[in-house]
């Protein structure tokens, strides 16, 4: 048991740092740069039943202290993920991995989870009910407590592995959604997905993104994310995975003090491929600076 160890839904993590889905592919590309076993785990690219090309380009726009993305769940589909991506992942990562699953119907979430369930390396399912960049699925499940609960109940029946519902910040009361998925059988929640935003190209006088709107991430959203982690952690008993603009070890500790059991890192991976490794390496020194002996002891510490 190291000083960085935490337990997430019954599975021990060597450290709480988790690259967020959509910023880390299926892991093997980052393994060209460093040994990704240094990470607690990672959440792989959002996977759907059928292959998806995603949205038209441009899919990325810069913002003050952050970025918008409207990738739109590009992925090869669950069958090819099992056949091609997971063997490559397994070759470079020896720990339990988090499987991020998206869908456009309750049935699709169930289908993908059922197909992935037999994969031994999958430790947790992260159920994305909060993608802001697709229409008719994604976020529409995450903005209504009843719809969020129905996805949760269906997925709950499809797997015995821990399910973590990834929540949208684009709601009036995120704690209410969190309570609804907890009551429906979720083992944990992760938040926040990106905040809906847009930009306009001044020269062309048109929306910059092909999809018009996109999800805002990066340091700009950190205080909003932290506030929501705080609210949700006080509202539910299941573990909370905090994310949103985390880019340094100090941010990880702040998220944990607000109530996060583990912390995902997203946009930072796209600016610096070594971001997560550097955060893991920086944590001991930052803990020492703030007199923290064991990370797990500070979870929710700001609320006591």
């Amino acid at each position: 048991m190291g000083k960085l160890t935490v337990s997430l839904c019954g599975i021990e993590l060597d450290n709480p740092v988790i690259p967020a889905s959509g910023t880390f592919g299926y892991g093997y590309e980052f393994a060209e740069y460093y040994d990704i076993n240094e990470l607690g785990t990672f959440s792989f690219k959002g996977t759907t039943a059928a292959p998806r090309f995603g949205n038209e380009t441009p899919r990325i726009a810069e913002t003050p202290a952050g970025m918008l993305n409207a990738v739109g769940l590009q992925n090869p589909g669950v069958d090819r993920v099992k056949r091609e991506e997971l063997p490559k992942l397994k070759a470079v990562f020896s720990k339990p991995v988090m499987a991020n699953v998206s869908g456009f119907s309750v049935g699709e979430y169930v289908e993908v989870v059922e197909k992935l369930d037999e994969e031994e390396q999958i430790g947790w399912f992260e159920i994305n009910i909060s993608c802001p960049n697709v229409h008719g699925g994604g976020m529409s499940f995450g903005t209504d407590p009843n719809a969020a609960a129905s996805v949760t109940r269906a997925v709950r029946r499809a797997t015995g592995k821990p399910i973590i519902l990834k929540l949208s910040p684009n709601v009036t009361d995120i704690a209410g959604i969190a309570r609804a998925v907890e009551a429906a059988g979720a083992d944990g929640v992760s938040l926040i997905n990106t905040l809906l935003g847009m930009r306009i190209d001044l020269a062309k006088r048109r929306p910059l993104l092909g999809n018009v709107t996109g999800g805002l991430s990066g340091p700009a959203v950190f205080p909003v994310a932290l506030r929501m982690v705080w609210q949700v952690a006080r509202a539910v008993k299941i573990p909370v995975v905090g994310m949103g603009g985390v880019s340094r070890a100090e941010d990880v500790i702040e998220m944990m003090l607000a109530g996060a059991t583990a912390v995902e890192v997203g946009a930072a991976n796209l600016i610096d491929p070594f971001a997560c490794r550097n955060i893991v390496r920086d944590l001991p020194a930052v803990m020492e600076r703030y007199g923290i002996e064991n990370l797990k002891d500070i979870i929710g510490g700001a609320n006591q």
């Binding site: 910023t23 899919r59 796209l270």
Partner: peptide, 17 residues
């Protein structure tokens, strides 16, 4: 040329068919 996010293959921002 495409607008890119990361530039090294992680974000899927510059995919083309």
């Amino acid at each position: 040329e495409r607008r890119m996010g990361c530039g090294f293959g992680a974000c899927m921002g510059c995919t083309c068919k």
